[in-house]
């Protein structure tokens, strides 16, 4: 068996007396497209925060390509190849759409600080390349015509797309999407599901998706993990999960 791309080993996250995630383990292989579902407050975002180094797990570890991520800073983890979007969109609002993408290239920059200050040849050559690649990436998301708009002035759906494009600009092996369909109408959601498929094929990366929209999840995820009150209560294909009594209970219970 090959090493999995992402190996989550018995992670627990406690906030004071509250256990947001309890002893969760699962693996993700290269180019997998999986989903994490569960009622509000189940610990899904907290799981993403542990994977990306925003929080360090209280117990357990996250391993990327055989490399444990404990004690690594969020910025180092980005460098190692994990990128994400946020449930509440976090763009660089007062910067242009293009600059949002350029910032994401940060860890891949080769020219030095002084190259930048004195605008050396090396700086100009690399910046030109970054600009071209960034515009190419924006074009994949139909955002190239909006490159000079301030990020905050984009419509909501375009902001979500820009956040995904920005995450991809870090050149990740694994992309984490936190409720990308939140606030979208059915047409936009359909478009999104195609976009996620396209991303995986185009960039050859694994995707983990947190989503409430069951239709979207059932349609695109090859494997689903279900969290409830911080516990992993089920995992498997869409069908397995749908028929699992624990899952039904968690969802119905949450709605009463």
């Amino acid at each position: 068996m090959t090493t999995p791309l992402l190996d989550i080993q018995n992670v627990t996250m406690k906030f004071g007396g509250l256990t947001a995630v309890r002893d969760v383990s699962f693996t993700v292989q290269k180019k997998d497209l999986v989903a994490v579902i569960g009622p509000n407050g189940a610990g899904k975002t907290t799981l993403f925060n542990m994977i990306t180094g925003i929080y360090e797990p209280t117990i357990g570890s996250v391993v990327l390509d055989g490399l444990p991520l404990n004690k690594k800073m969020a910025s180092e983890i980005t460098d190692l190849g994990i990128a994400r979007t946020f449930q509440n969109i976090r763009l660089f609002n007062n910067l242009s759409v293009l600059d949002n993408i350029k910032i994401a290239r940060h860890t891949r920059i080769k020219y030095s600080f002084f190259d930048g200050i004195f605008k050396t040849k090396k700086y100009r050559a690399e910046e030109k390349m970054i600009e071209e690649e960034s515009i190419k990436l924006l074009a994949l998301f139909n955002l190239d015509s909006k490159k000079d708009l301030l990020a905050k002035n984009l419509p909501y759906g375009a902001q979500r797309k820009l956040e995904m494009a920005r995450a991809l600009a870090t050149k990740p092996k694994l992309l984490l999407l936190d409720e990308p369909a939140a606030g979208m109408n059915p047409t936009e959601t359909k478009e999104l599901s195609e976009l996620i498929h396209f991303i995986r094929e185009e960039f050859q990366i694994a995707v983990i998706l947190i989503e409430h929209d069951m239709r979207l999840v059932m349609e695109i995820a090859e494997k689903i993990f279900v969290l409830d009150y911080g516990n992993l209560i089920a995992s498997g294909s869409a069908k397995d999960v749908q028929n699992n009594p624990k899952v039904v209970e968690a969802y119905l219970g949450a709605e009463i």
Binding site: I103, A104, T170
Partner: peptide, 9 residues
Amino acid sequence: IAAETMGVN
């Protein structure tokens, strides 16, 4: 937080 996630130390 977004900056950190983009690889900025």
